[in-house]
Each structure stands twice: as C-alpha cells, then as structure tokens.
Design a protein around this nucleic acid. Sequence first.
DNA 1: ACATTGTTGTTTATTTATAACAAAATTTAG
DNA 2: CTAAATTTTGTTATAAATAAACAACAATGT
Lengths: 253, 253
Amino acid sequence: MNDRREHIVELIQKHDKVYIADLTNHFQVSTMTVRRDLSSLEKEGKIIRIHGGAVAAQPLRHETAYQVKENVNVVEKKAIAQEAASLIADHSTIILDSGTTTLELARCLKDREGLSVVTNDVLIAAELVNSSVDVIVTGGELQHEVGAMFGSHTERLLQSIYVDQCFLGVHSVDTAGQVRAPSIEKAKIKRLMIDSANETWVLADYSKIGHKAFAHVCHLEELVGIVTDEQSHARHLHDNMVVAKMQEEGGDL
Amino acid sequence: MNDRREHIVELIQKHDKVYIADLTNHFQVSTMTVRRDLSSLEKEGKIIRIHGGAVAAQPLRHETAYQVKENVNVVEKKAIAQEAASLIADHSTIILDSGTTTLELARCLKDREGLSVVTNDVLIAAELVNSSVDVIVTGGELQHEVGAMFGSHTERLLQSIYVDQCFLGVHSVDTAGQVRAPSIEKAKIKRLMIDSANETWVLADYSKIGHKAFAHVCHLEELVGIVTDEQSHARHLHDNMVVAKMQEEGGDL
DNA sequence: ACATTGTTGTTTATTTATAACAAAATTTAG
DNA sequence: CTAAATTTTGTTATAAATAAACAACAATGT
C-alpha cells in the first residue's frame, strides 16, 4: 500500500495531474482505494485533490510546451483549419506537417472521400485512424510531448514521394517574410516537404507573425500562400506576401 | 441550417454516434443550436438522441472491428499487459507490435526510465507521446480502424534494427502451437519483428487460443514464451509450450 | 486481531438538457 | 428600397441526468 502511495506521488509530480480512473487502471484497485490514498496523501500535504483526481502540491515543473500550445488561440486555429480545408480537393494527396493547427486541419478532413494524407505527426495519424482518409506515416524518432517524427527515416520517406499540396505548421514568419523553425532538424524536414509538393501553404495564427525563430526554412514568396487570421493584419506583414484571409470581405493583402 | 442538419445526419450514419461538443466545434455554432437540430431530427425519426449527443435511428453499419476488439476481454488484457511489463528491464529496447493488448502494455510502460520502444502502431505511439519512453515509429501505410502501419517502408525499418525484446499481439495460436495472423502482409511484419529481436514473447488472451487464423507466422517453440490468462488452461494448449502465467500459483504449463 | 480493500447506498458536485427571452439574420409586404 | 414579420441563433437562468465523493459495513489477507 505504501509502495502504491509513493508511486502515486511520483506519478503526480511527473504529470502534474492524475485522474482517479487512470490510477484504478494502473494499479488495478477500486476507486475507493484510490480515493483513500489521495485523501491520506492530501492530509500529508503531498498532493492537492481535485474533482476526479489530484494535482501536485508544489507545481515545480511548468506545463509542457505542447500542453500550452494546444490550448492557445484555439478559435483562430480552428478557423484557419476550416479555411485551409476549403483549399483541398477530394481525391488529392497532401502532406500535413506536425503541429496543432495542422491537427485541427486533419479533424476537418476526416470525412473526405479519396483523400490521401502523408504526415510526420503521430497525433494527426491517430486522429485519422477512424476516418475515410488514407494515411501514410513517415516514421522515425518521436519527439516527446509534440508527437512529431524526425530523423533520417522521416527524411528518406519524404524524398521518395510527391504530392499535390503541402500544409506547413510554422513557428514564426518574420517581418521580411522568412518562414522559420525552432531547430535545424525541423527546418530540414519542412524543406523536404516543400520540395515534395506541387504547392505549399503555411498555416499560422497571428501569434506566429512577426517573431523570428531559430532556423530558416524558406521565404513566403517561394510558397503559394499563407492562411492566417485577420489579427495578423495589425502586425507587420510584408507587402508582397500572398495571403488567403479567412474573412471574405478582406481579400488578398 | 438545412445543410447543417443534413450534414449531421450523414455524420451520425458514418460514425454511428456523435457528441454535441464535437458538433459545436465542427460547425462553430452554440450548443443550443445543435440541441435544436438534434431535437428536430429526432422528431423526424432520422436520429435518436442520447445524453450528450445522438445515435443513428437505424444502426445499419455494425461496429468496426477495432471498436469491438478494444472493449473485449479488457480485464484479461490489462492483466496480461502488467505481467508482460514485469518482463521488461529499464534501459532496454523493445518492439511493440500493433494491437489492443500491446497498447495496454504501452500504458504500463509510460513511466519507465531509459526505455526505447519501436512500434508499428500509431495509437501506441500517440499514447507514449507524453511519457518518459523514447519511441521510434516504423512509418508506412496506415490501416484504418486498427492503427497499424504496414508496407515496404515499415519492413525496411524493421530490417535495419535489432532490439532486446519483442512483444507480439497475435490473432490466433492454434492447438499445435502455430502463431497465425489474419493476412500475409501482417504475418510478414511479425516475422521481421521476431528476426529483429533477441527474444520474442506472444501476448494472447484466452479468446485467441485454439483458433486458426489465415497466415502462418511461426511456431511457439521458436519464441521465448507466451503471456496469457488462466482461462487458456481450459483450452487445448500443446504440452511443450513455454507459458508465463499471470497467476503465481500456476507456474509453467 | 488488525490493517487493507471492495461493495453498497447516500450525498454532493458537475455536466447536460430545457425553457424563456433577446439579438441577428432572413424573408415578405407595402 | 425600406420596414414589419418571421426565422434562426445565442444568452441566461433553471431543471434534470450523470458522475464523483463519501460513509458504513463486509470480506480478505497478514
């Protein structure tokens, strides 16, 4: 029993939050036993109980990058995803880059007929398992928390294919129209995706515009366009960008 | 509005069941609007409302293979998974074959230190995104509903690696100890996994024992052992099988 | 005999559903 | 082409349904 309670504390410190249902599965005990463990541990001040589970008493570790990202600008991401979905024809083949905005796009495509999707994101692949879409997974090493795959294996598959369209999730588009990624490795993958597609679109909500991430991927002029939300117009968008806006009254920039 | 309602009916017929939360996201409307749509469609007899969503009025399509599989013998699968987890050392490298039992095993391994997992199942990979485990995804074409990857790409990766242990999910182990799979393609993948591992274990609950699926994979004697539940003893297990039982009082068969 | 766990029934918290009204959007009539 | 009328939608408050928490007791194992 003490082993289990120590283990519970460890689990909470690792994940910041645990659910009772998960703990009953993990230890194969009843909910009542878990509740008693949590009550006891809360009395000791080691954890704090919440409805359905418990959280760490001292949240030492900050939230993971991905957990933050997934819940930021959700409305904008959904709107961008819907706009991007309208650019995709049935019976075509596309690349979906790893990312939260492209994940939203995948959700919009679940019921499409005859669509083939190549992706380097296991969360996108998992989302499309129960769909009418054909999926090809690049494979490779899995990046923790994000779900992206990278490495030589990923690169080799990308080099062996050619698709109609590519949709990139990016970390920054700076004021000069440079598309940038947080690592050389990621930039390389994105570059390969661009080279394997007839046309490439960038998906980026306003929070990505104007920042300058580490590694250069390409210039917007090399691509067909960017799908973004109207708030981006308040920022410093270079003139000769091709921009597909979501709001119909706006038109190109 | 009528477009949306027709679309809702289509979605329900495709997925057998939809949730209001999903519909509000999909159409970007309020819950109230969705509720009114569902009420109206129920009055027309096209759907049947349930708490939190709606189901098809005439459930023409049977449940998908995977949805059935995932909810069958859950207790046995969890127990088998826990037993299998105890066979795995920290800081080792293993292959996890696609399957519901191996998915349970993956859940048991989330907090292991220094473990590396190679898998051909996107659901396993997605499960391990937020874990301490290093994951290598084989890549390849994705099989609908199951989440397994196959094809030349998968095979090439498996041929390029070597691991400590391999855990196979199988469709049948017949009375002669033949391990079998539902397709030649799948059998080929499993065979490659066996060849890429120092030792291979089969995970199979009692419902798999005694049946005879389509394609031959290997004989149990070629492997290190099988992890199963005690109900299997009631069935026709061949004598010279190596069996790791879950119940300690049992021992080898 | 004691500590631990699971089961049952009961209370509390949360989520989902409904109803009534106000704000847009659309249609129709003048 | 405007203005009333109708339809559709979103918001708020309230009610119903579900899930979670708790308490008391029985069962299990040490």
